[in-house]
């Protein structure tokens, strides 16, 4: 037994393991915190832009509750489509100078928020759009017949009626943004992504990398199951 543990191969493995544990001990807490913080903040900011935009995409079209000029609608759709079609990695590199301009830095967790928001808001706008399109036309019509203004129809009818679908969408947004954030480890973003890439890819510390990946997976699972549960619970159409 002791022979087995004292064999050179085993000695080597134990050293690697100890090294990995030491790294994880000193980095994991910070990594999780940075990941959560960048994900939640980015999602929040992306919704601040994406939610109203998604609403406009529905209400502003011909036959919507508050039609907008056709050229404006085409412009909005164009911007959303363009941003949606640029791969995130490229968007990130292109946008980093903007981070430097706004935040004074182009590396680290904070700098990451800007490209994440820019990548996520068009995608969120589309998800909000599709959630709101599910609202029954008849219910909107009923509200119109009661003399509700377009604002009230959005605020009191469309958004509340689409709540379960919006919650599902937000869950998808949150987990997707977390995935994007991990990718940003490549260009100096923080969080679990940085740990995985720095140690696993650049320094061949596979254990550290896999540990970071597993932590990411666990975080995604938690968000997803909480989100799904909230969506189901909030839906009063199910009896």
């Amino acid at each position: 037994m002791s022979e087995f543990f004292s064999s050179p191969a085993m000695q080597n493995f134990i050293a690697i393991l100890q090294d990995a544990i030491a790294i994880l001990k000193s980095e994991t807490a910070m990594g999780i915190w940075e990941t959560l913080y960048s994900t939640v903040l980015s999602t929040l900011f992306a919704y601040i832009i994406g939610l109203p935009l998604g609403v406009l995409l529905v209400t502003g079209e011909k036959g919507g509750v508050r039609p907008l000029p056709k050229c404006l609608m085409s412009a909005l759709n164009f911007v959303v489509n363009i941003l949606r079609s640029v791969p995130f990695l490229i968007l990130m590199i292109v946008v980093l100078p903007l981070s430097r301009f706004i935040l004074g830095t182009s590396i680290g967790t904070k700098a990451l928020i800007i490209p994440l928001v820019i990548a996520a808001f068009p995608f969120i706008a589309r998800m909000v759009e599709s959630s709101l399109r599910e609202t029954d036309k008849g219910v909107i019509e009923a509200a119109q017949s009661m003399g509700a203004s377009p604002f009230l129809i959005v605020w009191k009818v469309m958004l509340p009626e689409a709540k379960p679908s919006l919650i599902s969408g937000a869950t998808i947004a949150l987990t997707t943004i977390m995935g994007y954030g991990a990718m940003a480890g490549i260009i100096g973003g923080g969080g679990l992504g940085k740990i995985a890439i720095n140690y696993g890819y650049y320094r061949f510390k596979a254990i550290v990398m896999w540990a970071a990946v597993i932590l990411l997976v666990i975080l995604v699972q938690i968000f997803q199951s909480v989100g799904t549960r909230l969506a189901v619970k909030s839906d009063k159409r199910i009896t």
Binding site: D136, M146, G147, P160, E161
Partner: peptide, 23 residues
């Protein structure tokens, strides 16, 4: 705005009821 005001005096009911399902 005037029309919305007037509509409050003209109520409507529908074949599909059109109630708010989440309320």
């Amino acid at each position: 705005p005037k029309l919305r005001q007037a509509r409050r005096s003209i109520s409507m009911i529908f074949q599909q009821f059109n109630l708010l399902m989440q309320k």
